[in-house]
Simulated scan of single mutants.
Amino acid sequence: MALDAPAPDPPELDGDPDEYDDVTVQGTDYHRDDLQEFLEDGAWEEAFETWATETDLSREAFDIAVDLGMFDRFDFFWDDFADRVGYHAPGLPETWRERDIHPELNSWETVSAINASLAELGAEASRLLKDEYVDWEAEYDAPDDLPDF
């Protein structure tokens, strides 16, 4: 089921990858300016369009995520150690019901769908940025004594 919705504006990259519980990043050059430019030059819209054709997220759940500004809270950064574009996808907290976050948010199913779908969008944008936009090499030199697999 495809999502028929316009792509939100690209997020402004200003988070601190060292503070995310869901990622571990090594290095200090996150290439924020480069990644921001790539997102604004079409990578965000292209990733969104690919994701929208594959997502099971309903338009109602998408609209809730837009209302909550969740697309603005994505973050992307270069992870030199892993030679990848890392990402942090926003998510709804487990306390969503107690916090009365949105009047139309009324089921765990919707919360789970939003969280999973946003993680999938982050993964798609990360993959696209690495494959189609990043033109630099990782600078991390692995130790010589790593085992061969």
Results as ranks from 00 to 15, higher is better:
78 W>M: 13
7 A>G: 07
103 P>Y: 12
60 E>A: 08
96 W>C: 02
118 L>N: 01
78 W>N: 03
66 V>D: 06
81 F>C: 03
80 D>I: 05
4 D>K: 12
132 E>V: 05
144 D>K: 06
132 E>G: 02
40 E>F: 08
128 L>E: 05
21 D>Q: 13
4 D>E: 13
104 E>D: 15
64 I>H: 01
24 T>A: 13
10 P>I: 10
63 D>G: 06
111 V>Y: 02
98 E>S: 14
70 M>N: 05
78 W>F: 15
29 D>G: 10
88 H>F: 09
107 S>M: 08
36 Q>N: 07
66 V>F: 05
129 L>Y: 01
110 T>E: 12
38 F>W: 06
110 T>M: 10
80 D>E: 12
21 D>W: 12
86 G>P: 08
62 F>L: 06
10 P>R: 09
8 P>T: 00
68 L>A: 03
2 A>H: 11
60 E>R: 01
87 Y>F: 15
51 W>F: 15
54 E>A: 14
95 T>F: 11
113 A>S: 13
15 G>V: 13
31 H>R: 12
19 E>Y: 09
8 P>I: 00
31 H>M: 08
143 P>C: 06
19 E>N: 12
13 L>Q: 10
117 S>C: 07
10 P>N: 12
59 R>K: 15
78 W>I: 14
143 P>S: 09
118 L>E: 00
49 E>T: 15
102 H>L: 01
118 L>K: 00
126 S>F: 08
84 R>F: 10
97 R>M: 13
29 D>M: 07
117 S>F: 10
75 D>M: 15
10 P>T: 14
145 D>S: 12
67 D>C: 07
34 D>T: 12
146 L>P: 07
91 G>I: 02
137 E>S: 13
36 Q>T: 11
137 E>Q: 11
70 M>K: 03
3 L>R: 01
8 P>D: 00
108 W>D: 15
17 P>F: 08
97 R>Q: 11
46 E>L: 13
137 E>K: 12
